[in-house]
Simulated assay, not measured.
Amino acid sequence: MASDYDIKILFGSNVKKYRLQKGISQEKLAALSGLHRTYISAVERGTRSISLDNIKKIANALEIEEFKLFLIE
């Protein structure tokens, strides 16, 4: 069954949602995850594909389970 959403946009908007809920900047999320701020920005905009390793790094930095970054809400 095909879906009508872009997985990169969905993932990125969820990263942004959880980051804002946590009250941290992109720069802080980048530092906590060991990634670059411009990479976090591109992920949040849905313009960057992301590896499984980096998904785990971001989820750990946000203190959430990885699957939550893929939920449609």
Score class of each variant (00 low, 15 high):
Gly46Met: 11
Gly46Phe: 11
Val43Ser: 08
Ala30Leu: 03
Ala59Val: 07
Gly34Gln: 02
Tyr39Glu: 01
Tyr5Phe: 15
Val15Met: 07
Gln21His: 05
Tyr39Asn: 00
Asn60Glu: 14
Ile40Lys: 02
Gly12Asp: 09
Phe70Ile: 10
Leu52Asn: 14
Leu35Met: 11
Ser49Lys: 12
Glu66Lys: 13
Ile9Asp: 08
Phe70Val: 10
Arg48Trp: 10
Ile55Lys: 07
Ala30Gly: 02
Ala30Asn: 04
Met1Leu: 00
Leu71Tyr: 12
Asp4Glu: 12
Lys17Cys: 09
Phe70Arg: 13
Glu44Pro: 04
Leu20Val: 13
Glu73His: 11
Glu66Asp: 11
Ile50Gln: 06
Gly23Leu: 01
Glu63Met: 04
Gly12Gln: 08
Ala31Met: 11
Ser13His: 01
Leu35Trp: 02
Lys16Asn: 06
Ile7Lys: 12
Ser3Trp: 04
Leu62Trp: 00
Arg37Gln: 06
Leu29Ser: 04
Leu69Met: 11
Arg19Gln: 07
Asn54His: 10
Tyr18Ile: 04
Glu63Ile: 00
His36Leu: 06
Lys22Met: 10
Glu66Ser: 14
Asn54Val: 04
Gly46Thr: 06
His36Phe: 10
Val15Lys: 07
Leu29Lys: 10
Lys17Gly: 03
Leu71Asn: 07
Gly23Arg: 08
Lys56Ala: 06
Gln26Asn: 11
Val15Arg: 11
Phe70Met: 14
Asn14Arg: 15
Lys17Tyr: 14
Gln26Trp: 04
Leu35Glu: 03
Asp6Arg: 13
Leu35Ile: 08
Tyr39Val: 00
Ile58His: 00
Thr47Val: 07
Ser3Gly: 08
Arg45Tyr: 03
Leu62Gly: 04
Leu62Asn: 06
Ile7Thr: 08
Ala59Leu: 00
Leu29Cys: 13
Gly23Ser: 00
Tyr5Trp: 06
Gly23His: 03
Gly23Glu: 00
Thr47Ala: 01
Leu20Arg: 14
Ala2Ile: 11
Ser51Arg: 03
Ile50Leu: 10
Glu44Trp: 05
Ile55Asn: 02
Asp6Ser: 15
Gly34Ile: 03
Arg19Pro: 08
Leu71Cys: 01
Ala30Thr: 02
Lys16Gln: 15
Asn14Ile: 03
Ile50Asp: 04
Gly12Asn: 07
Asp4Thr: 09
Leu29His: 05
Asn60Asp: 15
Leu32Pro: 08
His36Asp: 13
Asp4Leu: 13
Asp53Lys: 15
Ser41Arg: 12
Glu44Tyr: 03
Ile24Ser: 03
Ser13Lys: 14
Leu32Gly: 08
Leu32Trp: 03
Gln26Ile: 02
Ala31Ile: 11
Ser49Leu: 00
Gln21Leu: 15
Glu66Trp: 08
Asp53Glu: 15
Leu20Gly: 05
Ser51Met: 01
Glu63Gly: 02
Ile50Met: 10
Ala42Cys: 05
Gln21Ala: 12
Phe11Gln: 05
Asn54Cys: 06
Asn60Gln: 14
Val15Leu: 12
Leu20Ser: 10
Lys16Glu: 14
Ile72Met: 10
Ser51Lys: 01
Phe11Val: 05
Glu66Tyr: 11
Arg45Trp: 00
Lys68Arg: 14
Asp53His: 12
Val43Ala: 02
Gly12His: 11
Ile50Phe: 03
Asn60Pro: 07
Asp4Lys: 09
Ile9Pro: 00
Glu27Leu: 15
Ile50Asn: 06
Lys8Phe: 15
Asp53Ala: 12
